[in-house]
Design a protein around this nucleic acid. Structure first.
Lengths: 194, 194
DNA sequence: CCAGTAAACGAACGTTCGTGCTTTTTTATA
DNA sequence: TATAAAAAAGCACGAACGTTCGTTTACTGG
């Protein structure tokens, strides 16, 4: 009988969970195998064996972060009907979850870190963010926005701006500013009930 | 006769110029003394003696970046009258200069890197960005904006969003998106000639 | 011309990094 | 319960990190 869960994959999952949190704070380059192992009370070599190289660990971490983003932002927004309501839901979900993770947004931290470092890690980060932008664009098109790309960019800029300003200044008013701006973006859409 | 310029301060200035560029790409933590020295064809120890510690080098680099920002974004905007025209000028100036520096915006890179690293370096970065936000706010108030803090945040989010998206995707259309959004923000102001 | 000072140098320090090998421990199944 | 496979640990390596040291070079003022 094949086991339902193997020990190894459980360990791997817990490593990646911690790795996403750590990388949100220290970056994917500052994420060190030794520190990660110490926090999980493992040996460096034992942890290392799961990935074979630091780059593979980084790529796996990006993948785990993408899954987490899907679970905590995308999936909870699927209740809202497509178009304007879902755009509002995704924006709100993102802003809500910002406070949950003490390290702030993984994508804000790592995309700024890797935007000038060519390679597979950068490509993986870029692909994940492009996918999110594409989904925003798709919903904006469904909502009847005239320029879906522009709309997606503005929503992205607003929520990332909240992360940036809130992390650095601690000023919670930026959440309100972004929600007001989001309202202004959405309110003029066809089929949006103010 | 006291010399007008000492050799040491010239060297220091050229070190910091290169350091700002390097930190925009690699971050202030990724900015390593050895690499900086190699690029300037100096010895590690000779360069190190100018600052005494890596943290002092980082702080000096932040200071040099602040001066550069002032010279390349603030000062050229002083031609425009205060209020709405100057806000537009500062936004445009920032967007124009983005292409000049191959490493992108120093502040976007380093603020994301240090928002979770308490200490003097973080404080210096936060102070510089707060000063910029405060200036945007001041101009917004002069322009007659009802919520200057919200306005300053939106302008900040837009231009930083351009840096983020342009660096990662290379899509130049985001410059247009931001200018359109900036227009929309400014056009409804009193004293703005559409 | 000589003394004093500032700037830059080369070598080495202790530490931490990622990585490779070998061994021990744990887990899953027959 | 025995056994093979998987997981984790132990140990060591070469390289790079920030930093310190003593020395050498290049100016400057008397």
């Amino acid at each position: 009988m094949t086991p339902v869960t193997q020990k190894g994959s459980e360990t791997r999952a817990s490593i990646l969970e911690r790795a996403v949190d750590l990388a949100s704070v220290e970056g994917l380059e500052g994420l060190t195998i030794g520190r990660l192992a110490a926090e999980l009370r493992m040996s460096k070599s034992g942890l290392f064996a799961h990935f074979g190289s630091k780059q593979e660990l980084q790529l796996a971490t990006v993948g785990a972060a993408a899954l987490r983003f899907r679970d905590s932002v995308i999936v909870p927004s699927l209740d809202a009907p497509e178009g304007a309501p879902r755009l509002r839901a995704m924006g709100d979900r993102y802003l809500e979850r910002l406070g949950d993770y003490s390290g702030g947004c993984f994508w804000a931290a790592t995309s700024a870190e890797y935007d000038d470092r060519p390679g597979p890690v950068r490509d993986a980060i870029a692909a994940a963010l492009d996918a999110w932008l594409a989904e925003l664009e798709r919903q904006a098109r469904i909502a009847g926005v005239d320029q879906p790309e522009r709309f997606a960019f503005e929503l992205y800029a607003l929520v990332m701006g909240v992360n940036s300003r809130y992390r650095l200044s601690g000023d919670e008013r930026v959440f309100g500013y972004a929600r007001e701006a989001l309202d202004r973006l959405l309110v003029e859409l066809p089929g949006e009930s103010g």
